[in-house]
Simulated scan of single mutants.
Amino acid sequence: MTHTPDPVAAIRRLHHQIRGFSVHSDLWRIQRELPDVPHDVLSTAWDPDSPVLLEKRIYVGIVRGCHGTQQQLDQVLNLYEAVKTALDGTGQPAGAATEPLSTPQFDKITSRADFTAVLSQLRQKAGLSLRETHQATKEFDPSHPTPRSTLSDWLRHGVLPQQRPELRVLLQVFLCRIVAPTDVEQHLEDLMRAWDLVRRADRGQIIKPAIQLNQAELLAKLTRRHREAYECGDINHHGLAEAIRIVEDLG
């Protein structure tokens, strides 16, 4: 019986190898080697729990930044090629589903809980952490990045997404890692249709906050969201700034 290599296990071996370098003390050298790579992406390369395979040049840059020997570089390159072999030319990123999504599951979405559960399932199938999801939305569409706190609300706390552009980007990030390219658009439209139906049915509940916040707590939450949106370049920070002014006036 032929043994099928596990790509996730192969990536973990590669990241364990990178973790063995002095990545923290030599971080400034690594960043000099890879000035265009954000720190969040760099740190994924030595996270053994991350199932995401980065570009080969990133692993090479880390080894060089840590003054690795040629033998160490060869070991890293061999591990990288082992990952590529495990992927076996399928084009599926590590952690992605190997079976097509079942469209009927989208037809069964009738509530906020159904939709947020599907979002969480898609993230799991895509093999992305919240941090990686945020970075992926930022790279996919810099004009509509989704702050990590918002992702946490959507994916962990069952909050129904309200921003259509950000939701479309998030779904595309997941679907591009799960289904064949020719199927992405159809699944995206199915999900957006389900979201429209749920949002209309849920409209009466949207205006009722699940948790009662006092003015100080509400201001703190709005201020945090405003700062994150501003740092991400999200144009929604203008609206958040206005909301902060309104809440302050209520006092």
Rank of each mutant, 00 (worst) to 15 (best):
D6N: 15
D6Y: 01
V8G: 00
V8P: 01
A10L: 07
R13V: 04
H16L: 15
R19K: 14
F21C: 03
V23F: 13
H24I: 12
L27M: 13
Q31E: 14
Q31G: 05
R32G: 11
L34S: 01
P35T: 09
P38W: 10
V41D: 08
L42K: 09
S43C: 06
P48Q: 09
P51Y: 03
E55P: 04
I58T: 10
V63K: 04
G65N: 04
G68N: 01
Q70P: 02
Q71S: 11
Q71A: 14
D74H: 13
V76E: 03
L77H: 05
E81R: 11
A82H: 00
T85V: 10
T85C: 00
A86D: 01
D88Q: 07
D88H: 06
G89E: 08
G89A: 09
T90L: 05
Q92S: 09
L101T: 05
T103N: 03
P104D: 05
F106R: 08
F115Y: 14
T116H: 06
T116V: 12
T116L: 05
V118T: 06
L119Q: 01
Q121I: 09
L122C: 11
L122F: 08
R123T: 03
A126M: 09
A126I: 04
G127C: 10
L128W: 00
A136T: 07
K138W: 00
E139W: 00
P142S: 14
S143Q: 11
T146R: 04
S152H: 11
G158T: 06
L160R: 03
Q162A: 12
Q163C: 11
Q163F: 08
R164V: 04
R164E: 14
P165G: 03
P165I: 13
R168W: 14
V169C: 06
V169K: 03
V169P: 01
L170W: 02
R177A: 02
I178M: 02
A180R: 15
A180T: 13
A180Q: 15
P181V: 08
D183L: 10
L188R: 09
R193S: 15
W195R: 04
L197R: 15
A201E: 15
A201V: 00
R203H: 12
R203I: 10
P209K: 08
P209T: 12
P209S: 12
A210H: 11
Q212C: 10
L213Y: 08
Q215D: 00
Q215Y: 01
A216H: 06
L222S: 03
R224E: 06
E231T: 07
I235A: 10
G239C: 02
L240E: 04
L240S: 01
A241K: 10
A241Q: 13
I244S: 07
I244N: 06
I246E: 15
E248L: 05
G251N: 11
